[in-house]
Design a protein around this nucleic acid. Structure first.
Length: 421
RNA sequence: GUGAGCGUAGCUCAGUUGGAAGAGCGCCGGACUGUGGAUCCGGUGGUCGGGGGUUCAAGUCCCCUCGCUCACCCCA
């Protein structure tokens, strides 16, 4: 006879009052920040066909290897409780033909499941907030994800730092992996056997091993930087100059790798203080080939996921907060050179809780106006030669068609005045 | 689980007695070299759910199968 225990399963827990309210508040703030960047909410099922994660996350990931809650359904199909949020969103993008949108910005909040050994800040059912941006191949997309994550950390008063790396692409990474594999082999006997299989599956996971015996070898290894192809180099440079322009602090970590195979080029993590060694609050990166690896269209993506349990461990809840943006605008540019200006102006508006979306594809003004109209923006801010030269910006009312130039420094106040009336 | 109906482009659908896969909307571009919605023009987009069969020829007929919707059953 089985004794029914009045107890949550291992690694799972109840959220009791008053924490329930704390969670709701936290989720609302996260949703607000996402909306400040023009991200809209998506909800996908908690169960997906196992194929989705096996194919997407890759065989070398520990998650797929040994942590998935997977079972055979009564009809013989295999289902998995989602261990992460990106693959389901990509599945949804393909299934619903979202390629017909010029770009897609979505965020999600919900439970994820991994059958790990529970520890502090590590549960079998945990909760993630995440964002995905599809359709932007340039470094501005990466910058947006990183800047948004940084804003979340500022908003919640989390001290820590952004760790960042570029891990190359299918063109250049294989060459690096070969060189790395060769070098690792020279020290093969010094590496405890328990790690051998992991390294064989994906040599880059070597840097993920948290073991003194292995860590001392890190410095002897070649770095990905020397192997990056021209395209990855350009992308990396573009991102780094943009982050510098934005004044966003980060620490380059040439050994940062992530647990999923789908990442290309940019990867990043936010390491929070007080979470113990190498415990990231959030992490993400670019995944330009995940979509087509599923047989979908060739659409680039970038995003991050954030552990809410971990966030709550290190967060100081903001006292006063709004849950809706005060206004929503789209910032457009007359030529690609001004995309940085638009990006930076939008960032400053978000400080004032004005949602500001930017078309990061670098397309024509006409195309951006069309997108703004389609998305229902009441106000569009235009940056062109005249405006940039004078430090001004044109405010266009999309309903009346009237437009006027204002100082960039004053534009937030003007939008707030207009928006509230 | 039982029964019925429906599966054709991203969406809504048309497709005649079996005879060259279409329309509207959307998306991209142009007319309009810094301006959306209107109009016109061009372009993109399809394993006709999948497999098998009949036939010179199948989106169309037959068989199997998968999926979706609705009703019933059950249920938050």
């Amino acid at each position: 006879m089985i004794t029914v225990q009045m107890k949550t399963p291992k690694g799972m827990r109840d959220i009791l009052p008053p924490d329930g309210e704390l969670w709701r508040k936290t989720e609302n703030i996260l949703a607000l920040i996402a909306r400040l960047y023009g991200y809209r909410e998506i909800r996908t099922p908690i169960l997906e066909y196992s194929f989705l994660f096996r194919k997407g996350l890759g065989d070398s990931s520990d998650v797929v290897e040994k942590e998935m809650y997977e079972f055979e359904d009564k009809d013989g199909s295999y289902l998995t409780l989602r261990p992460e949020g990106t693959a389901p969103v990509v599945r949804s993008y393909i299934e619903h033909g979202m390629k017909s949108f010029p770009w897609v910005r979505v965020f999600y909040i919900g439970p994820m499941f991994r059958r790990e050994k529970p520890q502090k800040g590590r549960y079998r059912q945990f909760h993630q907030f995440g964002i995905e941006l599809f359709g932007v191949s340039g470094p501005h997309g990466d910058a947006e994800a990183m800047v948004m994550l940084y804003r979340v950390m500022k908003m919640f008063g989390v001290s820590g730092y952004m760790s960042y790396n570029n891990i190359g692409c299918p063109v250049c990474r294989p060459k690096y992996i070969e060189a790395l594999r060769k070098e690792i082999e020279r020290y093969w006997d010094d590496i405890p056997e328990q790690y051998h299989e992991k390294i064989n599956r994906n040599p880059m996971r070597f840097f993920d091993i948290k073991d003194e015996k292995v860590a001392v070898l890190f410095d002897k290894m070649p770095t990905i930087e020397e192997f990056l192809c021209d395209e990855c180099q350009t992308h990396k440079q573009g991102l780094e100059t943009l982050l510098a322009k934005l004044g966003m602090p980060y620490e380059k970590n040439i050994r940062l790798v992530r647990g999923f195979d789908y990442y290309t080029r940019t990867v990043f993590e936010y390491i929070g203080e007080g979470l113990g060694a190498k415990s990231a609050v959030a992490g993400g990166g670019r995944y330009d080939y995940l979509m087509e690896s599923y047989g979908g269209p060739s659409v680039p993506g970038v995003g991050f996921g954030l552990g809410i349990e971990r966030l709550l461990m290190v967060a100081k809840m903001p006292e006063r907060i709004v849950y809706e943006p005060y206004a929503e605008v789209m910032v457009v540019y007359t030529k690609k050179d001004f995309m940085d200006n638009a990006f930076i102006l939008a960032e400053s508006l978000r400080d004032r809780f004005i949602a500001a979306e930017v078309d990061l594809r670098g397309t024509s003004l006409k195309s951006q106006m069309k997108a703004a109209s389609k998305r229902g923006y009441k106000y569009v801010l235009i940056l062109g030669d005249d405006e940039v030269e004078k430090g001004m910006v044109t405010l266009r009312d999309m309903n009346t068609g009237q437009q006027e130039m204002y100082k960039q420094m004053e534009i937030a106040d003007i939008i707030l005045e207009r928006g509230s009336s």
